[in-house]
Amino acid sequence: MLGKMLGAKIIKDQLDQNLTPEQKKILSDPNFAPDVVDKLGKDAKISLVKALTKMKKGVEWMGKLKNPRDMAIEFQQGEDKRKYDDRLDHKKSASYKEYADARGIEIEKDSPIHEIILRVKSIIAQRITGGELIEDPELAKMRDNYTEVLRNIILQRIEEEEEELPKDLNDIIEENSWGTINSDFYNKLNPQDDNNERSINFLKDDEGFTHRAEAMIAALNNPNTNEELQIDEE
């Protein structure tokens, strides 16, 4: 019902009230022709009206977007982020926060993990909708489901990482076996490094590194001088 009511005329009326000259220029843009606005879906129209209303209050960035669809999308994305931030607000309850709380995971708003989760959400939304507004409930549900799944996997992985890492740094040294690449080798790899006595320690169970190191040593050994670089085992 509301979707049908939100025709181009109503949107133009919204714009007509107390607009600045610059904002009024938007009205004359061909992108705001009634047939263009009418082609927007219900959700996009609602977002557009909200965006225009916000613009009237002096939000400058809205005026820079002349395409009504872009304005609607930009507004909706801002709303999505705001709602999402609200969910992460420690004062409010959210399933995500409950999950973290139950496992003693501390995730601060604006932390890198928060950023990762937002990025994941954005990747999923982009993948599913190609950046378009989600007006199809089935697609919106799919996006939300996958976001939740990924969020939980990430939190689970954080928890595992916490458990895997030893409590004390000394345990890292004692619980692993180590090899050392001698300083000659290091200097050949890093000739610009001033520290001529530096050597590299590597985890002996890190097979990938060991193989790469052996390959590099073979490549660096100079047959003309019979000099051979060795991996020293401790």
Binding site: L165, K167, N170
Partner: peptide
């Protein structure tokens, strides 16, 4: 991505490490 408490504890322990063990911990 680690808990703040763990980072804090690690930071407190760094000064106790021997110089030669620093690269191992980093690795």
């Amino acid at each position: 991505h680690l808990k703040e408490s763990k980072i804090k504890k690690y930071l407190e322990q760094v000064d106790e490490l021997k110089k030669e063990d620093i690269p191992k911990v980093y690795t």
